[in-house]
């Protein structure tokens, strides 16, 4: 699995309230919610994002609430993945559980610029900045988590376990 796209760059501590403001959480409909993705930090994100595009951010991405709506709207907008220096733990867990790819890589988060074209290989964790022609190695997931991702999310992996 991999993704390729243009980089949107954000700072440290991007919280779930800016990823999807709570004022819109009166519906669980992912398509409706996705219209407001990143609205409070980047008003034009939804207009500009193309399938496969990559978000690059600093420390503690996804801090704040437990709303799974946050990784869900990023996934629904067809964002390819998020690369950050670190992730808040509930966001990290939610992204894995719904099968939305995230990668931790401090150097990539520092060096990759907004607008760069990048390719990310999820199997190897190799991030390639095609604009600068530099490569980075993200931290691989532990096998247990790889299993959840490969199954297509937590519930699918539970089903697999039950069927075995």
């Amino acid at each position: 699995m991999n993704t390729q796209g243009t980089v949107f760059k954000y700072p440290d501590n991007v919280d779930t309230d800016v990823i999807i403001p709570a004022r819109y959480l009166n519906t669980p409909d992912a398509n409706e919610l996705a219209l407001h993705c990143m609205e409070d930090i980047d008003k034009t994100f939804v207009e500009r994002v193309k399938p496969g595009d990559v978000i690059v951010a600093g420390w503690n991405f996804g801090c704040g609430s437990s709303r799974e709506h946050a990784p869900l709207v990023l996934k629904t907008c067809k964002t390819g993945c998020v690369i950050a220096k670190s992730f808040a733990r509930i966001f990290y867990r939610n992204a894995i559980n719904i099968g939305f790819p995230i990668l931790e890589c401090e150097q990539a988060a520092d060096e990759i610029c907004a607008g760069d074209e990048v390719r990310v290989d999820f199997d190897t964790g190799v991030i390639t900045d095609l604009t600068t022609n530099k490569t980075y190695q993200a931290q691989p997931f532990p096998p247990f988590i790889q299993h959840i991702i490969k199954s297509g999310g937590l519930l699918a992996s539970l089903k697999e376990g039950a069927d075995e």
Partner: peptide, 22 residues
């Protein structure tokens, strides 16, 4: 499925916030 689930640690419980799939 609420981030402030960690509140119940005050009672000597292990308690943590998760998402809806969890």
């Amino acid at each position: 499925a609420d981030s402030h689930t960690c509140t119940y640690g005050a009672l000597g419980a292990f308690s943590t916030g998760v998402g809806s799939t969890d």
